[in-house]
Design a protein around this nucleic acid. Structure first.
Length: 565
RNA sequence: CGGGGUGUAGCGCAGCCCGGUAGCGCGCUUCGUUCGGGACGAAGAGGUCGUAGGUUCAAAUCCUAUCACCCCGACCA
């Protein structure tokens, strides 16, 4: 492609709306432009990338026997009512105003609709159907550029099997295909297993990438691969100390002390000697949650113990305990007490006195808080020990790139998609569902592969194999040589972007090339040309080589072709 | 939906407090010079100041409403 004739509106300045590297770079390289909140147009270079990623996905899906569909985004609402998901999606689903249609946020219903009544026999199974198409979700708050949009491209696949055992096989095929896809895309990712049943499924895995722009917080162990959402993640921590002697409790005036930090500073003690109280209301009843030191209550874990819960209001706290938050403690608390396991058997603890501006010392959990029930309630922190391998856990934010899960028969049941087994008996088809966010793959790659000059594409995803820069195209010798090389490169099968712009200066072209980030730059300059040479620069390393004109294609064969994908 | 912020030329911004001819940098057009890391000179084009209403002799500026976008939170199959 000739850059002079291609629409690649690069930006020198950083658009003020963009905050994360991938968003900034996608705008600056002219890949995308925003049309509305969470609505993006892909310009030619951006769309080229979409096609590259899609093609990798397509190849790996086809390799496991999946068949590609093209489904409507516009769906009759009644199909979605069959499964109760109009209500389940609520405001997240876009509704058409002048007809009873919705814009599909995913395609379980439509795929099941096609399977119903057509896939009738166990002989027709298994099937894996997929599509790579636009989804619509009325996100309350689109953000991070293309990462969370109201309209986005998703590869979604659905498997249809005759039994849960066979579903396992389809699921494993996807698991392997997904790893190949993300490997080929050159992403550093990890897999979070979850047993959530929100979609009626039995097992699911999320493919995630570490990123500040992420919307999930996960705990990850690099050495063994343990990964879990921080809401459910576990770690090994030592318990609070249990001393041999255990003197009786005593009251201490602590004027103005509200937080654990203040308490530690005031009494010159360590956090581990303290117990923090939080009051929740569960089923109308107060529950005191006792954590060691400044450990954070993990409400998801707490919810698993208590069921429904909400934090107590300040006036409720006062009424229940006689003190405000900051002076509440377990001793004398009337109501259920749930403590984190770190506090089991601990003694000589300091906690609130249920009297403003007073704390109690010398608390012995077994003696003074005998009614306490112990659970793992804390939120895992970076640096704690992995329960699986004993190495260090890291806690960070991550973006969900893909999700595979076993649906079971939720949709086939609801929509009556049944098949007949060998004995002529009716069964609902057993389904699986598998998604990949296509734009997210691109955005995550950019998040992981950029420097201060721009994007650093891999061979597999780069919009161009090489970027040919004719430095001063007004010089006849440069123009002539560049044109000749351009033709040669195309002949040799390379996808080349040729910066043939007459009016752009060298520095301008260099900066654009670094920004656009093709793996190799071939630089045709007047001085080198006089010696029969041109320069090849490797974008990732910045390494430059002088190559005789005639040796270019051979040089590329050994460098470009041997570069990692 | 709660909190905070921003809307002025294609992009980045100043002007607003204290009302009085709408500005700067980049980009764009033309000509000349330059030509290996975002050149220089000269001459130009380009704006209903988000929108609507109000106050005023006069509104980008003050008031009210509304819309859009960004950030934090809530939400996230």
């Amino acid at each position: 492609m000739r850059q002079s004739k291609t629409f690649i509106p690069t930006l020198k300045e950083v658009p003020s709306d963009a905050t994360i590297p991938s968003h900034i770079l996608m705008l600056r390289t002219g890949m995308v432009r925003m049309v509305g909140a969470g609505i993006y147009s892909f310009l030619p270079v951006g769309y080229k990338m979409i096609k590259k990623v899609s093609e990798i996905i397509r190849e790996e899906m086809d390799a496991i026997g999946a068949q590609e569909f093209h489904l409507p985004a516009l769906n009759p609402k009644e199909i979605w009512e069959e499964t109760g998901r109009v209500e389940a999606f609520g405001d997240t689903m876009f509704h058409i105003k002048n007809r009873d249609y919705v814009l599909a946020p995913t395609h379980e219903e439509i795929m099941t609709f096609h399977a119903k009544g057509v896939v009738k026999s166990y002989k027709d199974l298994p099937q894996i159907w997929y599509q790579i198409q636009t989804k619509f979700r009325n996100e309350p708050r689109p953000r991070s550029g293309v990462i969370r949009g109201r309209q986005f491209l998703m590869k979604d696949a659905y498997s249809f099997d005759s039994s849960f055992e066979n579903l396992d096989k389809s699921y494993d095929l996807h698991d392997k295909a997904y790893r190949k896809i993300f490997d080929r895309c050159g992403l550093k990712y990890f897999v979070v297993g979850a047993s959530s049943g929100a979609m009626g499924g039995s097992k699911s895995e999320e493919f995630m990438v570490k990123s500040e722009a992420g919307e999930d917080t996960v705990a990850y162990c690099e050495s063994c691969g343990y990964a879990a959402n921080v809401e459910v993640a576990a770690s090994i921590t030592h318990g609070a100390p249990a001393h041999n002697d255990s003197p009786a409790i005593f009251e201490i005036p602590t004027p103005g002390v509200k937080s654990i930090d203040e308490l530690c500073a005031f009494l010159k003690i360590n956090e581990i000697e303290t117990a923090k109280s939080r009051v929740y209301i569960s089923s109308e009843k107060p529950v005191l949650v006792l954590m060691s030191g400044n450990d954070e209550v993990n409400e998801t874990k707490l919810e698993a113990v208590l069921g429904d819960l909400r934090p107590g209001h300040p006036d409720e706290l006062k009424e229940l305990t006689g003190a405000d938050a900051g002076s509440i403690g377990p001793v004398g608390f009337k109501g259920r007490i749930i403590a984190d396991v770190r506090l089991k058997d601990a003694n000589k603890l300091y906690s609130g006195a249920n009297k403003n501006d007073y704390h109690i010392g010398g608390i012995d959990m077994n003696r003074d808080v005998p009614q306490a029930e112990y659970f793992d309630l804390r939120t895992v922190c970076s640096g704690e020990t992995c329960t699986r391998c004993g190495k260090n856990l890291e806690v960070f934010k991550a973006i969900e790139l893909g999700h595979i899960f076993k649906l079971g028969t939720k949709y086939s049941d609801a929509m009556g998609a049944n098949f007949l087994d060998e004995e002529g008996k009716d069964h609902p088809i057993v389904m699986g569902s598998y998604g990949i966010g296509v734009e997210r793959v691109l955005a995550c790659f950019i998040e992981q592969n950029n420097d201060e000059r721009g994007i650093v594409w891999s061979k597999a995803l780069s919009p161009f194999d090489v970027h040919l820069l004719g430095l001063n195209m007004k010089k006849e010798a440069v123009a002539e040589a560049s044109e000749k090389i351009y033709a040669e490169l195309k002949n040799a099968g390379y996808d080349v972007l040729f910066d043939d712009r007459l009016d752009a200066q060298a520095g301008f072209k260099f900066n654009d090339a670094d920004l656009l980030g093709a793996p190799l730059q071939i630089i045709v300059g007047e001085k080198n040309l006089q010696n029969g040479n041109l320069e090849v620069k490797v974008r990732r390393t910045g390494e430059r080589s002088l190559i005789p004109l005639a040796g270019l294609i051979d040089f590329l064969k050994t460098t470009f072709d041997s570069m990692p994908a």
